[in-house]
Amino acid sequence: MAKKAKKADESWGKLVRDIIVILLLVLGIHSCVAKPFYIPSDSMMPILRNGDRLIVSKYPYGWSYASVSFHLAPKMEGRLFGHLPARGDIVVLEHPETRVDYIKRVIGLPGETIEMRAGVLFIDGRPVKREVQPMLSIPVDRNTPGPDSSLHAIVTRDGAGNPILELPIVRETLPGGATIDTIEMGPRQTDDFGPYVVPDDHLFLMGDNRDGSADSRVSVAQKGLGGAVPFDAIAGRAEIISFSTNGDAVWYNPLSWFAALRSGRAGTNLRPEHDVEAQ
């Protein structure tokens, strides 16, 4: 009996060790290589929609306390093998005060002066190139627009009577050549900002839905970032959409999981395109 009890204890001990090893392996991959990320808002439309699932790589900018998944690491200065993001990259970050995950685009680099005048972005006193694009039509579903989105005000209907979003798009070409499509809804409070000098080792971040993004232009009291964020707060770079759902899925019906998938979203590359002539 003693031998059986000892053997059972060893089996339980091995099981516990195996579980711990698996958990540490998962945490290591999440923190050092890549992790999934869920889009919960419309602040990065049109490229990202509420309901998108992404792959976020952890290694392109090196590692800091923000790289550790589930906000387990204490905040500390410094970054291992740090490399500044490129302008135009979409990054996931820990909010410097609340430690909630945000996703925004890199607009301003250390030492640059950022200003918004009547919705036009200026970097170091020069306006970025802007081109008005055709209206973008996106079907309305349970996830789009999001629950707190300003885009509900522009829901209309197509010829068949289906609800759609008709989005006014302005394409910006940033210094260095990165091109991004932004939503321009007309005069808003965040259309005028600055001039603001980005501190050393900080990044100025904005959402592509310029009139519906709590970003570096918005105070912390209004759920924004309250200015540029420390480089150490960057957790990783958004790489690709793995899949996207329209909000119709229910957990107890596996068939609804497949029916809720949005077609054409999986595999979308989230790295910005570049205008070669502007580089």
Rank of each mutant, 00 (worst) to 15 (best):
R130T: 15
G224C: 10
T98N: 01
A238Q: 03
G177Y: 00
L136F: 00
E184V: 09
F204A: 04
A73C: 09
S31Q: 09
G176T: 02
A178H: 08
M185R: 12
S244A: 10
S11C: 12
R262N: 08
H152N: 11
F81N: 11
H274F: 14
A266Q: 10
Q133T: 00
L84W: 13
T173I: 03
G227Q: 01
S31W: 06
W257I: 02
A235W: 11
L255Q: 13
R171P: 01
L167M: 03
I241S: 00
R99H: 15
W63Y: 03
E94G: 10
D101I: 08
S69T: 10
T113S: 10
T182K: 07
L54I: 01
G62N: 09
S137N: 09
M44F: 00
F37Q: 08
D148K: 13
A260M: 10
S57G: 00
S64Q: 04
S244C: 04
V276S: 06
G51L: 05
L80W: 14
M76P: 00
D275Q: 00
T98C: 02
T173R: 00
G227L: 07
I180P: 01
N246D: 15
L48H: 03
P134C: 04
C32K: 11
R237V: 10
G227R: 05
I234M: 09
R217E: 06
P96E: 12
V26Y: 09
L109A: 07
L174K: 01
K35H: 15
L203F: 13
E115I: 06
G13L: 02
H202F: 08
A178M: 06
L255P: 07
G13H: 01
E115T: 08
R105Y: 02
D192I: 04
M45A: 13
I22M: 12
R271N: 06
I240W: 08
P199Y: 02
R217F: 06
N246I: 04
A5S: 10
L205G: 02
L48I: 01
R53L: 07
L109W: 07
I90F: 09
A5D: 13
M76Y: 12
D124Q: 10
L270F: 01
V229Q: 02
R117T: 07
V170I: 08
G78I: 03
E10S: 13
R105V: 00
V120W: 06
L80D: 05
V276M: 03
A233N: 15
K104P: 04
P60I: 01
A73D: 11
K223D: 15
A73S: 14
I19D: 11
G111Y: 02
A238I: 05
M116F: 15
G88P: 01
P96W: 12
H30R: 15
R79S: 12
L93C: 14
D101P: 13
W251A: 14
K35L: 15
V250T: 12
I183N: 07
I183L: 07
D148N: 13
R262Q: 10
S149A: 05
E97R: 09
P110V: 07
P134M: 03
Y59K: 06
F81S: 11
L93E: 12
W251M: 12
D181N: 10
C32W: 15
A118N: 15
V132F: 11
S41F: 08
R130N: 14
